Simulated assay, not measured.
Amino acid sequence: MIIYGLKNCDTCRKALKSLPNAEFRDVRRDGVPAELLKTAYAQFGNALLNARSTTWRGLDESERAKDPLDLLAEHPTLLKRPLIEHDGALSLGWAKDVQEKLLG
Rank of each mutant, 00 (worst) to 15 (best):
A73P: 01
I2C: 08
L6Q: 11
C12N: 12
D97W: 04
R52T: 15
R28T: 10
P33M: 06
M1P: 11
L16V: 13
C9A: 11
I3C: 08
G45T: 09
L48Q: 03
L90R: 03
E85F: 04
G45A: 14
K66T: 05
D70A: 14
D60F: 01
L78S: 04
E35L: 05
A42H: 13
E74Y: 09
N46H: 14
P33D: 03
T54A: 15
R25I: 15
L78N: 02
R81L: 00
D97G: 00
L102W: 10
R28E: 15
A73S: 09
N50F: 09
L49P: 01
K96P: 01
R25S: 15
L103V: 13
S18D: 08
M1Y: 10
D60S: 02
P76A: 01
A40I: 10
L48S: 02
K17F: 13
P20C: 09
D30A: 12
I2E: 05
R13P: 08
G31I: 09
T55V: 11
L49I: 14
E63Y: 10
Q99E: 05
D60T: 08
P33V: 05
V32G: 01
E100P: 03
A47K: 14
L19W: 09
G93M: 07
T77I: 02
S18E: 04
E35N: 06
R81F: 02
S53E: 03
T55G: 15
E35C: 03
R81S: 00
C12V: 14
G5M: 06
V98G: 00
I3H: 05
D60R: 05
D67R: 06
L78V: 04
L79D: 03
A42P: 09
G93S: 07
A95K: 08
A22K: 10
A34F: 08
C12H: 06
P76D: 00
E74W: 12
W94M: 01
L6C: 10
G5T: 05
G58R: 12
G5L: 07
A89P: 04
R25G: 13
T54I: 11
A22T: 14
K101W: 03
R25L: 14
G104K: 15
A65Y: 01
P20S: 06
L49A: 11
S53N: 13
G88S: 13
P33N: 05
D30L: 11
D26Q: 15
L19N: 07
R57P: 07
L19C: 12
L72H: 05
G93V: 05
L72D: 02
L37M: 09
L71W: 05
A15R: 05
D87N: 15
L78H: 02
E23H: 12
G58F: 08
L90V: 02
K14V: 04
D10P: 00
E23W: 11
K66N: 06
I2M: 10
Y4M: 08
L103Q: 12
L36H: 01
S18C: 11
A95R: 00
L49E: 04
A73Q: 07
D10S: 06
K38V: 13
A89N: 12
A47M: 12
T77R: 04
I84F: 01
F24W: 13
W94K: 02
L102C: 07
G31T: 07
L71Q: 01
V32Y: 01
L90M: 03
T54G: 12
L103W: 13
W94E: 02
L16E: 13
L72G: 00
N21L: 14
L71S: 02
